[in-house]
Write a protein that binds this DNA or RNA. Structure first.
Lengths: 129, 129
DNA sequence: GCTTGACCTGGAGTGCGCTCCAGGGGTCAT
DNA sequence: ATGACCCCTGGAGCGCACTCCAGGTCAAGC
């Protein structure tokens, strides 16, 4: 299943987990922590039903987490969505995060260069052995 | 102080911390975990004295940690240095790690693109408000 | 109507990588 | 010789982000 071919009534938590790449437990954990933009509706028997929007937001959460934003900061970001006209603040958070990510990428890239040099050194050493 | 202008007798743990960018506690922790190639010598009163080589190795540890290698894996890598002729294995670990780092960089880059798109969206929205 | 399996909740447990602390030196300037 | 510092050890504690568990509900298939 892809996110665009989701049934109208929404999907179960396990399907949402697969679609988002998160675990079922993590989905419930994120919801408990208030990271969901809107909590998924419940079926008549109380089970969560994730809509396309719900799943899309999970994608945003993954994006922020994988780029190293802590849960606490994501919480602040989500909370702004509940405040009318907070777009400038949301933008500011994203821009600041972008800077962090770029710095991080840069640092990792520098260390990667060092790894490559070490590999070169060993490749020569091993080849001439 | 830079690593090339270190006194011959070695430097204290706090100096080594500054030079490496790690904390004093982390230095002792790494040593406890067996991540040091050679344990630093001790002064007559039992204090650690880090040589240039010691500090250079700390740089390697930082390189591996900052690129996401777990302590456990670094331990395995260091242990190979105690085995004669283990250069091929050390090389293999570095090559495998390199692949991981590249995959990671790639993933982060992809998420960064998504962040940029979100920023673009908000910039337009905020500008036209 | 019984089993199976996915789901529910609240809360405890885990792994990682540090970080901090108590209690105790040694060294050096005043 | 007193105080200020830095250092030592073993071990406890912490923050983060999950992950797991017990005990229970519900729907569907046989």
């Amino acid at each position: 299943m892809t996110v665009t071919e989701m049934p109208a009534g929404g999907v179960t938590i396990s399907a949402a987990a697969e679609l988002s790449g998160l675990s079922v437990d993590t989905l419930r954990y994120y919801e408990k922590e208030g990271l969901t933009l809107h909590r998924p509706e419940r079926s008549s028997s109380g089970q969560r039903r994730y809509t396309e929007d719900n799943v899309r937001w999970l994608g945003t959460l993954v994006m922020l987490r994988k780029t190293g934003m802590p849960i606490r900061d994501i919480k602040r970001f989500v909370d702004l969505y509940r405040i009318e006209g907070s777009e400038p603040q949301r933008l500011a958070i994203l821009q600041a995060h972008r800077v962090h990510v770029l710095e991080d990428l840069n640092e990792v890239q520098t260390h990667l260069d060092a790894i490559n040099r070490k590999i070169d050194y060993y490749e020569e050493k091993v080849l001439n052995a």
